[in-house]
Design a protein around this nucleic acid. Structure first.
Lengths: 141, 141
DNA sequence: ATGTATGCAAAACATTTGCACCTGG
DNA sequence: CCAGGTGCAAATGTTTTGCATACAT
């Protein structure tokens, strides 16, 4: 229960907000679109509108509770922000998303930004590839 | 005139395609959305539909003539693909886009991908920040 | 000629917003 | 009670598609 996180963010503790947090926690290894969250809510019997899901996710993003990513493909995806920055590697076939952090890359980016006269605020690094996992339904055999 | 590039890509050489290539060349330092290209066409007196712009840009992307990027903000942007891979640094204030390549980062990415059991196909690294250029209209002074 | 391209308008999506009603503190 | 939150439907913005016409080869 992170009612506190919500309150700290100046947000009232409401059912929709709590349920959406729950869904995101229950799927903390996934990266869900607003539609995904909406469907998950329906499945768990919650009657929450899609518009609310969008509103809440955007508020959570602003509050620093979640991060929004624009991978390839129409819709944005969200994940809980645990405070640990990380980048992503996405399987172009099965959509699997894995996370990583590379200190060397992080450092180079700071240098590059300042070398270009930019104050870096954030960055987004996504590697696209084809995973060779056994359970990847698209794995070439 | 790169009618050859078009033909090589299996595309008929048509006015719209040539004009769109022209616009992209004339703005090779920019990163234009489909809408931007469309407006530029109108300004140069061409009567080409927006749907055609989208279709052509997508075909060009498939043919490897242009690259599509999904930066933050609603629409995708395109740039000619000169074959030289590079990443981007975008000013969150003025929208300026600069390009860079860092061999160290490139190498680390390959290592990371294989370490995760992925065959890397491409990657997208975008640094977001605030530029300190003199002509940035948002520059804090 | 003939298979492609294009233009236009309509459709399909993803996301946002207006507004009357509900709810948490 | 009352500011803020929610649901629904309508509006927006972007990109795609259907179809009849026009064009490149």
């Amino acid at each position: 229960m992170e009612s506190k996180d919500l309150r700290k963010a100046g947000l009232k503790v409401t059912i929709p907000r709590l349920k959406i947090l729950e869904i995101l926690e229950a799927n903390s290894d996934a990266h869900m679109s607003a539609e995904d969250v909406f469907k998950a809510l329906l499945e768990s019997g919650e009657d929450i509108g899609l518009a609310t899901v969008y509103r809440v996710l955007t508020q959570f993003e602003t509050a620093g509770l979640v991060q929004r990513h624009n991978f390839e493909g129409g819709s944005a995806v969200f994940e809980l922000d645990d405070g640990q920055h990380h980048d992503h590697i996405v399987c172009a076939d099965c959509g699997r998303v894995e996370e990583f952090v590379d200190p060397v890359i992080e450092e180079r980016q700071d240098d590059i930004a300042s070398g270009h006269g930019f104050d870096i605020s954030t960055h987004s690094l996504t590697i696209y590839g084809r995973c060779t996992k056994e359970d990847c339904p698209f794995r070439p055999r």
